[in-house]
């Protein structure tokens, strides 16, 4: 090979190497690209809102329930429904709860009231947490990664402690969604807007109300709803199935994923009234046999849920109270996950 050609080849090599810092940004896809190719597009987010009384409203039920406090009113308690404290709609940690306000099975201050109980029924151990909050900003989510599209994981109890959760439950482990069909938001931040064609969806809005979308083949109610109410969305979970919708016990599709008929550990979240919620864990794979979706739905219905939604179960199932697993699981045994749902106090730290 002649020298000029070799020089030319060397110059080309040098040019490629020198230009690499300009175009080699990251081994993984950056969020800006992911956003451009994974959702409906930003321009659609500002579509005009359809009238609330339209067909859409009939199709999609929401909790918008009247006051139905499931926790017995406590005389001269600290909880004040009219408290004006609020937290930001972001992924920042909540204020630290006051340690003096904890009891063995509860917590109460002027912005939050939590009561937990364990129930044994037909060989199944249930852990139930009743929660009332003064502001919808106290219903929060935390993620393991530094950004919402991260695939990083963390132990749920660590996430609960770091974010000062009074009580928390595992989320839907969105980073492990193998089909990436999920429609997911966390604290108003979009993770994915992919059209969901497989799973039910839970949308939590800025009033703290639950809207459940049942997957109906050929229809995509959740994305339609979301497009119309984009400014009101705080958290969206794609997992399910929907267990109770609009106060009605739902029939479970036998072909729904996550082993619907098997007795497994399960987690669920429900809304019982305005700013009133219930978190439920059914233990399984041990002394407690676990439950199938039908039994879980019945339980949520019996607990008075207007809306109830199944979350990730199996080894992911965990209820955290005061920074520790309420079912007594050592932290080393916890399955690390991408996200949790938690309730926090809104009383500022001193």
């Amino acid at each position: 090979m002649k020298t000029p050609i070799r020089i030319l080849l060397a110059v080309l090599c040098a040019a490629i190497i020198v230009s690499m810092p300009w175009f080699v940004s990251s081994p993984h896809m950056l969020d800006e690209v992911r956003a451009d190719y994974s959702d409906w597009g930003e321009e659609e987010e500002n579509e005009e809102e359809p009238e609330e009384s339209g067909l859409l409203r009939l199709l999609i039920a929401s909790a918008r329930a009247e006051d139905e406090l499931m926790i017995e009113e406590v005389e001269a308690g600290k909880f004040d429904r009219n408290s004006t404290y609020e937290l930001p709609w972001d992924l920042s940690p909540a204020p630290k709860p006051n340690p003096d306000n904890y009891t063995e099975n509860g917590y109460e201050d002027e912005t939050i009231r939590v009561k937990l109980e364990t129930q044994e029924e037909d060989g199944v151990t249930w852990h139930v947490a009743w929660v009332e909050i003064a502001s919808p900003t106290q219903l929060r989510t935390a993620i393991a990664g530094k950004k919402v599209t991260s695939k990083k994981d963390a132990r749920p109890s660590s996430m609960a402690r770091v974010n000062n959760a009074v009580v928390a439950i595992n989320g839907d482990y969105y980073s492990k969604d193998p089909d990436k069909t999920a429609f997911e938001y966390r604290m108003t931040q979009k993770i994915r807007n992919n059209n969901n064609s497989k799973k039910d969806t839970l949308i939590i809005d800025k009033k703290g109300n639950f809207t459940l979308d049942r997957f109906i083949k050929g229809k995509n109610e959740a994305s339609e709803y979301a497009k119309a109410h984009m400014d009101e969305i705080v958290n969206v979970f794609t997992f399910g199935p929907a267990l109770v919708k609009d106060g009605q016990l739902m029939e479970i599709d036998e072909h729904y994923g996550y082993n619907p008929n098997a007795n497994e550990p399960r987690s669920a979240i429900g809304q019982t009234g305005e700013l009133s919620y219930v978190l439920v864990i059914a233990e399984g794979r041990g002394e407690s046999s676990g439950v199938n979706f039908k039994a879980l739905a019945q339980k949520m219905y019996d607990l008075g849920c207007q809306q109830a939604f199944n979350l990730d179960g199996g080894n992911s199932s965990i209820l955290i109270f005061n920074g520790q697993s309420y079912q007594g699981m050592p932290s080393g045994d916890e399955r690390s996950q991408s996200d949790i749902i938690y309730f926090a106090t809104a009383v500022p730290e001193n």
Binding site: S25, P27, M29
Partner: peptide, 10 residues
């Protein structure tokens, strides 16, 4: 998206 190399993905 394939040619949008500066968006990452290697």
């Amino acid at each position: 998206g394939w040619i949008r190399v500066s968006g990452g993905g290697w």
